[in-house]
């Protein structure tokens, strides 16, 4: 079985902290951070490495601030790494 790993890049200055992505993430990878951006919004941050790159967060994000990457890791390749 290949394992899928993902990574999200959040455009924190454009995030409005609506939290819809937090609800949509099946891995509880996202949470509202304490810091605020230039607009005065608390923005979303990654809180663990469980992201599978499922893109749910990006699809629900109204402001299109999330970019998602996904990589499929096969055991053999991993050994090679």
């Amino acid at each position: 079985m290949a394992k899928v790993v993902g990574e999200v890049i959040i455009d924190i200055e454009r995030c409005k902290g609506c939290e819809l992505c937090i609800q949509a993430c099946p891995e509880q990878t996202l949470a509202l951070g304490k810091a605020i951006n230039h607009k005065g919004y608390q923005y979303v941050v990654k809180v663990n490495d469980n992201c599978t790159g499922c893109v749910n967060c990006a699809i629900i994000c109204p402001d299109a601030v999330i970019t998602v990457y996904r990589k499929s890791l096969k055991p053999k390749q991993e050994v090679a790494v």
Binding site: K3, G53, Y69, R70, K71, P75, E78
Partner: peptide, 26 residues
């Protein structure tokens, strides 16, 4: 066997792994 080694973000965040980005028409 089958155990996944740690991958760092830099390995994932590569153009070939991009699965969602802001649409260019926006």
């Amino acid at each position: 066997a089958g155990e996944v080694l740690d991958v760092v973000a830099e390995d994932i965040v590569r153009p070939e792994n991009l699965v969602y980005r802001r649409p260019s028409a926006l």
